Amino acid sequence: MKNKTVFFVLSIILLQLMGCAQQKKTDITFKTDVYKFGSIQEEDAPVDLSFSFTNTGEEDLIIDQLKADVGIDNLKWPSAAIAPGESGLLEAKFNPKGSSGRVNKHITVYSNAKAATVVLRISGNIIPKPGSIAARYRKTFPNTDLRLATSYLNYGNIKNTEERTKELKIINTGNADMSLSFKGMPVFASAQAVPAVLKPNEEGLILVTFDGSKIADKEGKPVWGKQTNHFYLVINGEEDRSNRNLISIRSTIIEDFENLSEEELAIAPRIKFEEIVFDFDTIVKGDNVSHDFVYTNLGENDLEIRHVKAS
C-alpha cells in the first residue's frame, strides 16, 4: 500500500512538471510583418523574402513550422531554440511566374509564443509577360491551380423572355487532373464545364446560361432593372469555406415588347415626368432633403411602375 502511495504522489508531481513545461510561453516580435516587393516582371527571378524577429519573452522561443501560399517556397527558419533577447531570421522565395496584377500572399508562423500563429504578408504588383498564361488568364483563386480570363460575366440588357449563354475561359496550370462543379447557382442560371475534366495545362470553358424568364424575387415575383448575382466554383469536390472562388453575374432585366402588335403599342402606357432633374443646392451634412418627381401616364392602358432604384 505504501509503495502505491509513493507511486501515486510521484505521478502527480510528474504530471505537474509536464504541465509546467507545456505552459511555458514566450513572445515573438517581428521587425515588420509585411514585405512589399513593388512592381516586378513575371519573367523576373524569384524574390528573396526575409523577416527578422526577436524573442521578447522570458522563455526560449521555438519555431515549429512555416506554411505559405502557392508561389512561395524554400521556407527556412532556425532549428535551434532562440534565447530570450536573441533574434532570428525567417527566409523564403516568391516565384512570380504564372502570376499577374496585384498579389497578396501569406506565410503563417507556428511557434510556442503566446500568439501561437503569426501571419506575415507579402504584396506587390506583377507585370505579366505579353502572351503568357498570366497575361491571358489574369484571375486566380487562392491555393488552386485554376486560372480564369475573368471571374465576371456581364449580360447587359436581357429580356424577361430571353435565354443567353456566355463563356468564361479557364486553364488548369497544375500537374493533376481538375474537375469543376458549382455551388449557390441562382435559379435562373445554369453552368457547365467543358471539358468536364481539365488535364494539366489544358484550356477549357465554363458555359453559363441565363434564363430571363426565371429571374424573380423571394416571393416569386418578376424583377426588373440592374441585378447582381453570384455563384461559387468547387474544385475537385473541395469547397472553399471562405467562399473566395466567386463568379459574379450582372444584368439589366428589361421587358420584351417585341410581340406587341402596332395596335397594342399605340395604346400602351407612356410615362412623362414634369421634370427629370432636381438640384438641392447646398445643404448641411446630416440634413435630409425630399422631393417629389411627378409623372403622368399619357397612354391608354394602365401604367405599372416595375422598379425604382436610387444611387
Rank of each mutant, 00 (worst) to 15 (best):
E264P: 01
K31I: 05
T161F: 05
A268K: 07
V70T: 06
A268F: 10
V187M: 14
A216V: 12
S311N: 08
L66I: 03
E300P: 05
V6L: 11
P96K: 00
A68P: 06
D48W: 00
P130R: 02
I254V: 14
V9G: 07
M178H: 10
A113Y: 05
P142Y: 02
S111Y: 02
N3K: 13
G98L: 00
H106V: 03
G237S: 02
D27M: 15
P200S: 11
I126E: 00
V197H: 06
Y152M: 11
Q192T: 12
S151M: 12
E163Q: 15
T108N: 01
E203D: 13
S181Q: 03
L75W: 00
V277L: 14
I63K: 06
L15M: 07
Y232G: 02
A81T: 05
E275F: 03
V277P: 10
G19K: 14
D211Y: 09
K36M: 11
Q23N: 13
L61W: 03
T108C: 01
I171A: 02
A68I: 02
L17W: 14
E255I: 15
A266C: 03
Q23T: 12
G131H: 04
Q192I: 15
F7E: 15
V294L: 14
P186W: 05
I28D: 04
E42T: 01
N243P: 02
S311E: 15
R121Y: 15
D211P: 05
G101K: 06
A21K: 15
A310E: 14
P46D: 01
E86W: 01
I62W: 09
L298C: 06
T296P: 10
A189W: 08
T173D: 01
A113S: 08
E219N: 13
T209F: 11
E304S: 13
L153P: 14
F51E: 03
N95W: 03
V208G: 06
Q227V: 12
D256I: 05
L120T: 02
D60V: 09
S50Y: 12
D33Y: 06
S52K: 09
G156T: 07
K36I: 05
K105I: 00
S242M: 07
E264T: 01
S123L: 09
L90M: 03
Y137E: 04
E91I: 00
I63D: 05
G212W: 15
G184S: 08
N154P: 04
S242K: 15
V308C: 04
L153V: 09
N229W: 11
L180E: 04
F141Y: 13
K218A: 15
D48L: 07
R250D: 12
H291V: 09
A193N: 10
G184N: 15
V194C: 12
A68N: 02
E203V: 09
S248P: 01
E300Q: 13
T150E: 14
G299H: 06
H106S: 10
G174D: 07
I253S: 01
A193E: 13
